[in-house]
Structures are given as C-alpha cells and as structure tokens.
Amino acid sequence: MNNPPLSRITGKRRRPSEFLLYGLIYLLAACLAVLVLLLVGYILVRGLPAITVPFLTTAENPILETVGIFPSIVNTLYIVFFALIICVPLGVGGAVYLSEYAKNKKLVGAIQFASETLAGIPSILYGIFGYVFFCVLLNLHVSLIAGVLTLTIMVLPIMMRTTQEALRAVPKAYREGALGLGATKWYLIRTILIPSSLKGILTGVILSVGRMVSESAALLLVAGGSAMYMPRGSVWEQLSHSGSTLSVELYRYAMSRGDNGTAFGIASVLIVIVALLNLLTRFVAWRLNKK
C-alpha cells in the first residue's frame, strides 16, 4: 500500500514548471489556428458580398459607378500563362542538366548557388531589375510582357528545385536499364525521366502559379498601370500594354482610392485561388504517394 505511485517511478509525474510550458505550447498552437480562421473568415465575410457576376465579368465604369475586375483577371491569366510557357522548359531543362549531364563540380555548385540566391531575392528588387533591364534597356516599356519576363526569373528556382527533387526520386535502375538497352541520353530523358517526374514538375507549376498570383511589388514597377478597360486587340497588343493583375489592383483600390469593399472582394477571390492551389498540391502529392 505504501508503494509510491507508478507515475513517480516512471518519471511521468509533471512538475509545475512543465505544466506551464505545456500550457504555453498548446496555447500558442491554438492561437495560431484561431488567428488563421479569424483572418480568412474576416476577409471572406467582408469580401464575398462584393462578388457578383458583373463584378467578375465587367470592367470598372466610372460613369455608372460600377466596379468590375474582369480586365485584371485577364491580365493575371496572361502573365501566369506566358511566364509558365517560358519558365517550365527552362526550369525542367536546368534541373535535367544538373542531375543528368553536369560533371564539373564547380559548375554544379555555381548553378545551385545561383538558384538559391534567386530564391532569396525579394520581389521589390526583381521589380527594380525588371524595370532597368526589361523596360528600359530592352525597350519593352512598362508592360505585361516585361512582367512575364521578370516573373519568369522569379519562379525559375521553384521549378528547378521541385523538378530536381522529382528526378532524384527516379530509381537508378531505370537509367541503367535504358542506357544498357542502347537508348541515347535524350531518348532516356524524353521517354523515362520526364514522364516519371511529371508529378514533381506539376507541383512546381502549382507553386509557381501561387507565387505569381500573389505577386504585387515587382509587377507594380514593371507591369504597373491599371486595368480599366475590357481587353481588346490581339494577344501581342495586350501584352505590350501595361496592366495590373489582381494583387496589384487590390493594392490600388485599398491604398490609392480607399475603396475597401472592392479591395476585400478581390482579396476573397485571391484567398479562394490560394486555397484551391494548396488543395491541388496536396492532391498531386497524394496521387504521387498512391502510385
């Protein structure tokens, strides 16, 4: 009867100081969860009422005093689409070079370092570089195409890293088998390596889209402008004009005009896009694990 309780022997008894620490940890975790729910909830509650069919499908009309974000949706799609067209082959190619071709250790180190450096440069500096290089030096002016090129460099490290990880996961036996059967290197890459790392590449694409959709500082400088008019003219004509994406438009409504209702409407659209992209990443990862 006088035996000490089991918990004292196994050291499971908790000291008051430990209770405090446990309490603090659980409290912080709970606070974070509540914070996210509050922030997202607040945006949606204030923003969703603004979202109507005309809001999404028309341009702003100062005479009728209606607002619409269709032009900036189109600008966002243009920038994302064309940046991906350049960036995906470039990023995948770079990753293939690093993992399949490069033999010179110094070169590999330089490419890795460059890619890490690009990933660490903040978007406002991409904005300055893009302006000085693409808009002024290459004479592209402040335009969507300058935005496309700037964002291409910005998301290049994301594409390279995810593709590299996917290539690393392809078993060595695949490569040895193909080369042993007499396949050339390009044939091996084309028919085996790229198809088997397709899901990794897809993850890179989704992450890149997320980064581009939320980008504002760089685009404000290089693609700037506003999105007042419905899109017109050929694709090239539109690309060579300035135009703002959804994030930049949000900034304009909130800061230059103090129209918070519209800003929250755009914010809700962006939150929905970000949440969908997150779900998509998970879905791709889940399919990857199942395979």
Binding site: L37, I43, G210, L250, A254, A263, V274, N278
Partner: peptide, 24 residues
Amino acid sequence: GMRTFIDLLAGIPSVIYGLLGALL
C-alpha cells in the same frame, strides 16, 4: 490539419496582409 492552416498563411499574398494590417 494545422499544417493546412500554416500553408494557407504562407500563401496569402502580401497585399492582403497589408490590407488586414491597415484595418485591424
């Protein structure tokens, strides 16, 4: 579940943080 929340927090564009910051 928490990680879903944290990913969402990481994905929110900085202009939205600015908007929330200015108003809250």
